[in-house]
Amino acid sequence: MQRLIGLLGRVRERAPSSSASAPCAAGDPELREDGRGGLHSMAARGDLAQLRRSWWWKRLRINWRNAERQTPLHLACVNGHADVVRFLARKKCQLNPRDNFKKSPLMKAVEHQHEDCVAILLEHGASPNLRDGSGNTALHMAALLPSKPLAALLLEHNAHIDAQNKLGYTPLTTAITRCHEEMVEFLLQKGADVHAQDNHKRTPLMIAALVGDLNVIQLLLRHGADISHRDQFNYTAMSYAHMHPEYPSISTHLKENKACEMREECSIRGAEDIAGLNSSSSGKTTDMSLGAPQLPEAGRIV
């Protein structure tokens, strides 16, 4: 009997502590960590020391998402905490998760120009060719900034230089839309396709003529851009140049380049062909190369 009474006493002593522990565990903000707490906040502020101290029980949450579907790696990249990025990458976190806008940690690092974070991610195998919600790759973003060091780093890790976004724009075309002449020259030197076509079959030269950037036009022509190409509206680069009366030098330069091309074609045919061409079609050649094209209807451009 005494043994039974003692056993009941021990049960009564344990009951309160056991019942009290349940609500305490449920109410602990660390244990019910939401998307913005714990690893996310440590990664965002670059608190590597705290991250290491609490890693033993937080390691299972390394790929958790917050409300924007960002992982701790996203936030470390946004804020440029390279040591945290390296720590998470070495702990085998997912390197290519996408947030609500389908942007990967690498894209966020490029957007915020954190070159060291970009380098670490690429070294650990992050993909440079993922596309965000607009179809842009990390190289498109580097071209928009513009940042030649980031673009070079991405290309060294097999970024597709002629990747197209949802508009059909390559990084080269994207740089042209912002008049980033140095980036245009850099991409051309790296082998970007000067004849790439967007969704309306417009070439980089046509976009440059539409933007009105004579320096970029000259760069493209030096790399073999085709003046005669027609898009789906039957427009040429000359047509787009004539949409900008304030840029007469553009159309003049295109005409001169066209005339030069035709002279080169003639020289290749030999002296006899040159004489025949000059005697039979001199007037037509002048009209084709120097004549002003008919102004297109503005309403047809989409």
Rank of each mutant, 00 (worst) to 15 (best):
L130A: 08
A82F: 05
N165T: 06
S127V: 08
A259S: 08
I301T: 13
L145N: 07
E181D: 06
C117H: 02
D231M: 09
A241I: 00
L8V: 15
A259Q: 07
R45C: 10
M183E: 01
W56R: 13
A126P: 05
A163P: 02
L7H: 07
A138H: 02
M238W: 10
D99V: 11
R69K: 05
A43Q: 01
A298I: 14
S104C: 09
L277F: 09
R202S: 01
W55A: 00
K92S: 09
E68T: 12
S251L: 12
R45F: 09
N100P: 00
M42F: 04
R202C: 02
L254V: 00
L154N: 03
Q189S: 12
H114I: 04
L122I: 09
L106C: 07
S147Y: 08
W56S: 13
Y235H: 09
R178E: 05
P204K: 05
R53W: 04
V11S: 08
A175Q: 01
E264S: 12
E156P: 10
S147F: 11
K92R: 15
C179N: 06
Q189V: 12
V194D: 00
I274P: 07
P248L: 08
N278S: 15
R53H: 03
L60V: 12
I301G: 00
N66Q: 10
G38M: 00
P204N: 00
R98S: 14
R65C: 12
R263L: 15
D34P: 00
G283M: 04
S147C: 10
A119H: 08
L172N: 02
H195E: 12
V110N: 05
